[in-house]
């Protein structure tokens, strides 16, 4: 087995595992850059996964029948819409709903930590409990059991037009999930927003020195609300993508620690969108190693446990060794009280 074959099996798997972490870590960047700690990323992913699965299960049927309607009985002037495969849009619709609901759900954290001046760590922990409680309560309520059925319309891998035909690199990078490409593109977009736009400057400034921002006429509370809600949207997206590419159903164990890994990726990436993406890709890479190891001659005889703990050990070593210290945004964790010094 040549090195290229090995890379061709590892790299797609790495990107595949990394995508949900990238989304969620980007959400964390928004929230923490605005000065609000977000331990609740885990809960936001839970909410996203839950909403995505439920809306996918609920909408798959109706959207499918829309296709049939357009094919058979739609009035002539609408028939061109029949080209759209509404049934196949189901997962996309599901993640959009998940984004919206999770952003609204994150308002709980925003209200508590910005308006009520709650301890942000406590509020984030509560968010995790609340997401799990609400989602499992509703699953029990709606489906009468502890977990949902498997979705019938998940995301599938698809070759990216033309690019997948490039020799060697094509199969490595361009035959995965659409959502993975979106994750990587979004990381660059978020970098642009945070470092190159007035909005990003304001967001960072309320996280570094809210009093100075306030003096300059920036509405600190409003920026922080936006930061937290964006983290809700992105966390929800991460959870939704995890649910519709990896888990396929929702139960108490669907999201177990991915949110914390995303948090780690964000800190590892020094609160920088591209750094967070790099860290998430690294976690994905390490995770893929333990999954595909059985097919790689060099790793075949290594006991599984070493490969399982490798990503975590490597992260610790990297942090202690050559990444150096990372400083959080200065005003992180402290509520801004007008008029106080």
């Amino acid at each position: 087995m040549g090195i290229i074959d090995i890379l061709q099996s590892i790299i797609p798997a790495a990107i595949f595992f990394a995508a949900p972490l990238i989304f969620t870590a980007l959400g964390g960047v928004f929230s923490e850059r605005s000065g609000v700690v977000n331990i609740g990323l885990e809960g936001l992913m839970v909410m996203g996964a839950f909403v995505a699965i439920v809306s996918n299960l609920t909408l798959a049927g109706p959207l499918q029948s829309l296709d049939v309607w357009f094919d058979q009985s739609a009035p002539g002037f609408l028939s061109w819409l029949g080209i759209i495969q509404f049934g196949n849009l189901t997962p996309w619709v599901a993640i959009i709903i998940a984004i919206i609901i999770s952003a609204i759900f994150s308002l709980v954290h925003a209200v508590a930590s910005v308006s009520f001046r709650a301890d942000q760590v406590v509020s984030g922990v509560a968010l995790n409990f609340l997401a799990l409680g609400v989602s499992l309560f509703l699953v029990n309520q709606w489906y009468g059991k502890g977990q949902t059925d498997m979705v019938e319309k998940p995301f599938y891998t698809a070759d990216l037009w033309l690019l997948s035909d490039i020799p060697v690199i094509g199969p490595m990078f361009f035959t995965g999930y659409r959502t993975s490409y979106i994750a990587i593109l979004l990381a660059f977009l978020v970098w642009f927003i945070i470092y190159k736009t007035p909005f990003g400057l304001r967001l960072r400034s309320v996280g570094e020195h809210p009093m100075a921002s306030d003096t300059n006429g920036i509405n600190v509370s409003r920026m922080r609300y936006i930061g937290v809600m964006l983290s809700g949207a992105f966390g929800g997206l991460g959870g939704a993508v995890y649910a519709l590419t990896i888990a396929m159903n929702f139960s108490h164990a669907t999201i177990s620690g991915q949110g914390f890994m995303a948090l780690a990726a964000m800190i590892f990436g020094k609160w920088h969108p591209l750094g967070a993406m790099g860290a998430a890709l690294f976690f994905g890479f390490a995770q893929s190693l333990s999954v595909v190891s059985s097919t790689i001659p060099l790793l075949q005889n290594v006991p599984q446990v070493y490969l399982l703990i490798a990503p975590y050990v490597l992260t610790i070593l990297a942090l202690a060794g050559f990444i150096g210290r990372a400083d959080a945004p200065k005003a992180i964790g402290t509520p801004y009280i007008k008029g106080s010094r």
Partner: peptide
């Protein structure tokens, strides 16, 4: 459903935080 208690616990923590 027993998950109701998780919601209650979460809300209690929120109230403590706030």
């Amino acid at each position: 459903p027993k998950e109701l208690v998780d919601i209650v616990v979460a809300l209690i923590i929120f109230f403590v935080a706030s």
